[in-house]
Design a protein around this nucleic acid. Sequence first.
DNA 1: AATATATAAATGCAGCTGCATGAAAATACA
DNA 2: TGTATTTTCATGCAGCTGCATTTATATATT
Lengths: 147, 147
Amino acid sequence: MDDSSLAKPPRMDAWVRLQKASTAVLDRVEAKLKADGYPPLSWYDVLLELRRADQKTLRPVEIEKRILLAQYNVSRLIDRLVAASFAEKLKAPNDGRGVVVRLTSHGEELLSSMWPAYEAAVKQEFSEKMTDADADDLMRVLGKVLP
Amino acid sequence: MDDSSLAKPPRMDAWVRLQKASTAVLDRVEAKLKADGYPPLSWYDVLLELRRADQKTLRPVEIEKRILLAQYNVSRLIDRLVAASFAEKLKAPNDGRGVVVRLTSHGEELLSSMWPAYEAAVKQEFSEKMTDADADDLMRVLGKVLP
DNA sequence: AATATATAAATGCAGCTGCATGAAAATACA
DNA sequence: TGTATTTTCATGCAGCTGCATTTATATATT
């Protein structure tokens, strides 16, 4: 992913490493969760946003803004969550176009039971391998490239 | 992606930021390349590995090791590259099971023409937003979590 | 040598994703 | 008010991905 004709492109190297490292760690974390019978992290992300939200309820368009997913993708992910009864869809008050998505108690249970497995996987594949100062460095530098 | 019950989990925050930042930047880089009519970066990655390799030729299993892709995925990506005539498949010498993949001149041309667009996109979305020292920090910390 | 095991690569199927588009209601505007 | 525009959400289709399995050959074991 670099060009060997360039002598010393440390930032291009950093870009390549960013992609490789984040993918590698994510793959391994997801694999552990799946091995324990848990759904993908994208499910967890949405349910967590719902739990944080007022009334444990969000409009799909709000979910779209909070997590990094395209509109049609959010729409389908919600349908899967509803099909698994981790969330429910209700008509939005004051807006005939929209719906609201609400976390169910079954969804709260998933969040609770999944968190320890998730935390352990991230610890083992990521946190354990660095210091808090390293993490601060990551936060600082990656903060510069966020949208 | 964190748990609000924990007071100060800087490394969990770093993990969340790592995922968000790398996805966000990758999405934007890929979008620019696609807008210019170029294929996905995974194509570039494979072709670049071929160009670096002896005789511009690699076994699929070697490609699999160099880039982060599953076996069946490599198999299909190679087929797409061959269909687009950026690479060609030949019978492997000394191993009746396997094939070798060789970069074509058309593939070399793609690499050459794609590189400026790729570099420019990474610069704009990533490199420009940090210093070389920042990049060194990324390299150092992310090196700790690589496989 | 004969058999068992391991490795290389491809593929059918189901499910997920991107793209484009559509339907319905809200908002702007004239 | 009547029409145009925007916003919200869903969906048909094509292509991509993961999983499991298959085919073929190489290597190890006896």
